[in-house]
Nucleic acid binder design. Structure first.
Lengths: 192, 192
DNA sequence: ATTAAAACTAAACGATTGGTTAGATAATAG
DNA sequence: CTATTATCTAACCAATCGTTTAGTTTTAAT
């Protein structure tokens, strides 16, 4: 009774995600989305409502890319070392050396004006909070008090955002150094 | 033999700097610059050539705001503690809690596409390199080897960029915690 | 007072932004 | 085969972007 659309939402969103990730939200125009997603504005608006709609779908797709890393962290047994490994896993997700795109959530959070775009901010906040809880739980499994665990988790959240930013700007060895020193600091912190 | 302009370059640049700092380069339009600087587009273009020209002048003005902090760090005698104090001094420059604008250089570096805007990237890189050298020199005064000093300086550069980003997003106590743990890590690193 | 140069106002430039829509096309239910 | 309905193309919308320019006003040396 009607024509079938000749694209899959998940496929065109995958392309949009890559584009937003490399270009940022503001530096990605509808025209560029058209050519990259391979469908035109009408179809984009029909499927996703707005540019922000495309972006929100992209953020969800981006989050999904982390699911195996999340599960790995959640169920592994090596304590703080698992969190460190999670940092390296994320670094891999950000892309190869010299072409690292950083973390899409972190990139966006620093580029979006807080007053507008509330839906986007909320999605990012939820992503951050989830990791904070994961870190905190992992630390408490090591017999760290809840208060201390949350304190260190907050430190790690900031450190992880640093890794995202640094991976875009600094050589990979410096990023590795940063991670190593960061977890040396955490391990030292756990001894008192 | 000619009309005098009724504004001072340094004064209108001070206003532009504040605007760029709060809004970012891309989110600051010429119209907004007009109303904020209090002169119109003709005068802006006559004095600074382009939007990028205004921005470059703003970056220089921003750098000047750090001169006393730079001098303080350069000539103080407490070693690593001076670098830590420098972090706190910069945090003060970024603005009060809840309204922190972060570091204009760091903000910009993460928002500008590396391929274009080379002049801007270079100005930022120079600002970063200068601090790296300051950190390294300070560490070598503590009898740290040059190689080790540069390694720690690189770590501190990334950490300082974290402080900038975090100050915009996280509560001030978490930023303070981050700085404290960072310098605990550095001091621990210096003991081996 | 005349003249020339610089600074001003304000309108306009072409390009691009996010978003919309009329009409052609295709697919399926009856 | 026809009617229906969703999807497509492609042109278009008003608004805004950074930049330029024509025309007017102010200043100061002659």
């Amino acid at each position: 009774m009607a024509r079938k659309k000749n694209y899959e939402d998940s496929e065109v969103i995958a392309k949009a995600t890559e584009l937003f990730w490399r270009n940022s939200y503001h530096n990605t125009s509808m025209s560029l989305l058209e050519s990259t997603m391979g469908i035109n504005k009408f179809s984009i608006y029909a499927s996703f409502g707005s540019k922000q709609g495309v972006f929100l779908a992209s953020l969800k797709a981006y989050r999904d890319q982390h699911s195996s890393a999340f599960i790995k962290l959640k169920y592994s047994q090596a304590g703080v070392a698992d969190i460190k490994q999670f940092f390296y896993d994320c670094l891999t997700i950000y892309g190869a050396q010299d072409t690292s795109k950083g973390c899409l959530m972190t990139n966006t959070r620093l580029q979006i004006n807080s007053e507008e775009e509330t839906l986007i901010i909320n999605e990012i906040q939820s992503f951050v909070d989830y990791q904070r809880q994961l870190f905190s739980k992992k630390l408490q499994e090591q017999n760290v008090s809840e208060q201390q665990a949350l304190r260190i988790a907050d430190y790690l959240i900031i450190a992880k955002q640093s890794v995202s930013a640094a991976s875009k700007v600094h050589p990979i060895e410096q990023v590795h150094d940063f991670i190593e020193i960061t977890f040396d600091a955490v391990n030292a912190k756990l001894l008192n």
